[in-house]
Write a protein that binds this DNA or RNA. Structure first.
Lengths: 205, 205
DNA sequence: ATCGAATGTGAGCGTACGCTCGCATCCACG
DNA sequence: CGTGGATGCGAGCGTACGCTCACATTCGAT
């Protein structure tokens, strides 16, 4: 067998075997990330923990950063999907209902994969490429809220929809995030009521 | 001269010279942190950038984490001092005034040392010592708001002061942080009006 | 059954890092 | 001005890391 040329470091898995490898690598990444943090993560450790050789890892992920990026991207798709879906489902609901449902959706989204979500939000901000990923989420979210505000002037008392959307999306995200993931977690039902109240009073009443 | 015993790695500078060394080290840390990020920071690089030897650095900071912790702690004292002062100054002001002044204080606090504040919040790994430092801020802030709420039932329509304080403190911090430090910064005056409105409607009206 | 491509392996090279230690230099104080 | 503690220095040791490469194994198609 002749020598192999490996000019393209990142491949897409095509066989089932490879997909499984990628999967087990990502799971090990999540585990180690939660246990030791991003700093103490290393490609060698991940490979060992995944029961895979470093070489295999490097076939799919060119760097430690890429490893975490893939994990984050995947999680983002799930969470954002859930929330945007919820928003779309309530474009025509009355504000009280829509806001409650959307807030509930956000709380649920934070509830899924709590450990992973926590780790990612704690460890991610420091990574270059991932920063744009987060900004993407924020911009998307604010955009959706803004569109929602502009579609329904009925009872909505907002001056500048862009600003209000900005404020609300950041405020809600932070409150829910801290309430669900924080050390002093709040009962989800109470959290929901309070956040809905916060938003409703600001936007509508 | 006999050998030196260095059992205690961290010293307090007593002479003026040493204080200057510590200062220049911290400044270099801030500079490199902003340029390269926490991951690519190293004690050797910091020492070189500070025009100081590694040995000197290790006399005062036992690790890279301690370096950043000192920087963060110092910044925290300034910011928290400003905000708590503002809260204390308005324990007896009417809610409309108190809330506005406090919010303005928080906005101002974020405005001072924008670059440093930004870098710290983005680059600090929320693990180990640094994590507790951040939680400290959150708990302190929520505690102050809670105390304020409990002192003044006049017109305050809040059920559970602890929960309300939690929600408000996180919501305000996030909105202000994003508004002041974010890429799409908002005019501080507008930001102030909107955040005050958000809080006032939730807590009082 | 055969064969080329896809996938998996792991020893190991080069490098950068964390940190120490023996020593030089400086400063405060008698 | 002499002395001892405080401060500053920087070569260099041990280590862990990132990543490669030559090779083994498995898969899928024929």
């Amino acid at each position: 067998m002749g020598p192999r040329l490996r000019t393209a470091p990142r491949k897409q898995p095509t066989q089932a075997r490879a997909t499984a490898t990628v999967e087990v690598i990502l799971q090990a990444t999540a585990r180690l990330l939660g246990k030791d943090g991003y700093d103490h993560l290393s490609t060698n450790k991940v490979a060992a923990a995944a029961g895979v050789s470093v070489g295999s890892l490097y076939q799919y992920f060119p760097s430690k950063e890429a490893l975490v990026a893939a994990l984050a991207e995947r999680h983002r798709e799930r969470v954002m999907g859930l929330v945007l879906e919820r928003i779309a489902a309530h474009v025509d609901s009355p504000p009280e209902v829509a806001i409650r449902e959307i807030v509930r959706g956000i709380i649920e989204a934070h509830g899924r994969d709590r450990a992973l979500h926590r780790v990612l939000s704690e460890q991610i901000p420091r990574i270059g490429k991932l920063k744009t990923l987060i900004e993407d989420i924020e911009v998307h979210a604010a955009g959706a809220v803004r569109a929602w505000l502009e579609r329904r002037p009925h009872g909505v008392r907002v001056k500048d929809p862009a600003v209000a959307a900005f404020i609300v999306s950041h405020a809600v995200e932070a409150a829910v995030h801290a309430g669900v993931l924080g050390d002093a977690a709040i009962d989800p039902a109470v959290l929901e009521d309070e956040v809905v109240d916060l938003v409703l009073r600001y936007l509508v009443k």
